[in-house]
């Protein structure tokens, strides 16, 4: 009985998002992954005036059988450098995806809330402790790192020759590129300390 409601709701919501103003402005998008409405692909445009601007972020949305009485399970597929999103798994720390969920909320609410989270992080309720620490200690370093990740993984503009060079130094030593990027990002792009951590 419940999954009947779930399918009914997702069908309706799918139309709602397609028709919405945000889609017209290319801010959010939803795509069906399978025919039974249990999995969807979401997309969020990086909000303006943030290090995510110009990037396109893909989300995995899994709809539980008890939807909408329980929240959808959402995570970032696109790698992102953000205090409330795991840089490794893409898991998200957001209250409306947990206990603050309400059955009357929709996928549109979720996507817009995530976009708002990208624009205003909550470092005191972190999902990724390393990112949150950098965000609090060194805002500029955080901004540069997040922008670099956006350019690398989300198709954002501009590169960072200094960062690229440091990554190449590590890949030359046989380190995998993503791994090198995580290590350098975690150590404020200090090549020596990143190397030490990777080879210890």
């Amino acid at each position: 009985m419940a999954n009947n409601i779930a399918a009914q709701r997702i069908q309706r919501e799918f139309k709602e998002v397609i028709k919405s103003d945000e889609v017209a402005k290319c801010a959010i998008r939803v795509e069906l992954v399978n025919d039974n409405y249990t999995e969807l692909k979401g997309e969020i445009a990086g909000p303006p005036d943030t290090p995510y601007e110009g990037g396109n972020f893909v989300l995995e949305i899994k709809v539980p059988e008890t939807y909408p009485f329980n929240p959808p399970k959402v995570r970032f597929i696109t790698k992102i450098w953000h205090p409330n999103i795991s840089s490794v798994t893409g898991a998200i720390c957001l209250d409306i995806l947990r206990d603050q969920w309400a059955a009357a909320m929709t996928l549109r609410t979720v996507l817009l809330s995530l976009q708002a989270l990208m624009a205003a992080a909550e470092p005191d309720d972190p999902q990724d402790a390393v990112v949150a620490k950098q965000y609090k200690d060194d805002q500029e370093m955080f901004r540069l790192t997040a922008k670099h990740w956006t350019a690398k993984y989300a198709g954002g503009p501009g590169g960072n020759p200094d960062f690229e060079m440091k990554i190449r130094r590590l890949t030359d030593m046989g380190v995998e590129e993503d791994q090198a990027r995580v290590a350098l990002s975690s150590y404020n792009w200090d090549l020596e300390r990143a190397t030490e951590q990777l080879f210890s």
Binding site: I5, T66, F69, A103
Partner: peptide, 12 residues
């Protein structure tokens, strides 16, 4: 909200 949804909400 409809009564069926309330009941479902309570069940969950």
């Amino acid at each position: 909200f409809c009564n069926m949804c309330w009941a479902m909400h309570f069940e969950v």
